[in-house]
């Protein structure tokens, strides 16, 4: 394969759930990655004028290397166009429409060899979610988006009971999306090589964990280990020593991918999840 696989994250949620706000934050945080964001329309995309290089009818170009495009008539052809773009972006983010089934979109990342699954993020609005979930017209579709989520982000306030309800429905971690947290750290690619050696950093909203791992893992043993991972772990990434070359692993929500790679000099792992669903102890104990 000539180019690395393009990670694809789907941002889902009903109208008003805060998808655009999240995208605005992803585009403007200093994460250093060249994102390509596909949105339904530019209506609420709000880029700081200092960051905007050019704005055409269907493309916004940012000085940090990010690009934001409207999806146009065919989402999947827009994804194909993203793959053919030179240089290829480092991460593809899709804003699903307010009634889209996000798994039908994210599934393309499992099907297409040039893409890599990087998660379904479903937003729920703390003020309106309960009413929407019981709405006779759209309730099932709204709940379906939560069920498909690898992580649920609650916008417009925090509500512990609702977070619990969402986490149970999604069978995935749920957390409140406060204004002061870095969303790129949670949602974009983790870099095991840049991560601190071990559990050295603390964060107000997330538990992030990293480890150096000298042990050797067979594929089967690694898969078995991953089966028992803590439920609050949203993403885990790393390279481990294997008996016949290295093993590269990507875990996002329920999706596990283990593939062969060059034998690393030492194994490294990095993982992240919402603080309220995942503790340092839980992850450290699991991996130990």
């Amino acid at each position: 394969m000539s180019q690395p696989r393009l990670p694809l994250t789907v941002i889902s949620g009903y109208l008003g759930a805060g998808k655009t706000t999240l995208i605005n934050r992803l585009l403007s945080e200093p994460h250093g990655q060249q994102l390509m964001v596909l949105v339904n329309d530019f209506g609420a995309i709000n880029i700081d004028a200092d960051l905007l290089v050019s704005a055409e009818k269907d493309t916004l170009l940012l000085s940090n290397g990010c690009v934001c495009c409207t999806i146009g008539g065919d989402l999947f052809m827009a994804v194909a166009d993203a793959l053919d773009r030179t240089p290829r972006p480092e991460h593809l983010i899709i804003e699903a429409s307010g009634v889209a089934e996000p798994s039908k979109i994210a599934n393309v990342a499992l099907a297409e060899p040039d893409l890599r699954y990087a998660g379904i993020v479903t937003l729920a609005d703390a003020l309106n979610y309960r009413a929407l979930a019981h709405d006779p017209l759209v309730g099932e579709q709204v709940k379906g988006q939560v069920r498909a989520a690898d992580i649920v982000l609650l916008s417009k306030g925090s509500d512990q009971a609702l977070l619990l309800e969402l986490a149970v429905l999604a069978n995935a971690p749920a957390m409140a999306l406060s204004d002061d947290i870095s969303v790129s750290e949670l949602l974009l690619e983790l870099n095991p090589d840049k991560a601190p050696d071990i559990a050295a950093h603390t964060h107000p909203a997330y538990t992030s964990w990293s480890a150096q791992e000298p042990r050797e893992f067979s594929r089967a043993r690694l898969l078995e280990k991953l089966e028992s991972r803590p439920s609050g772990l949203y993403r885990l990434k790393g390279r481990l020593l294997g008996p016949d070359g290295g093993l590269e692993l990507h875990v996002v929500g329920a999706q596990i991918s283990v593939s062969a790679c060059e034998q690393p000099s030492i194994g490294k792992l990095v993982g992240i999840g919402p603080k309220q669903s995942l503790s340092q102890d839980a992850i450290a104990q699991w991996w130990a």
Partner: peptide, 18 residues
């Protein structure tokens, strides 16, 4: 079944309904 599964084939066979 469905575009996500069809897209990798369509892309490589040059099928573009647009």
């Amino acid at each position: 079944q469905e575009m996500a599964a069809m897209m990798p084939v369509m892309r490589r066979l040059g099928i573009d309904f647009r």
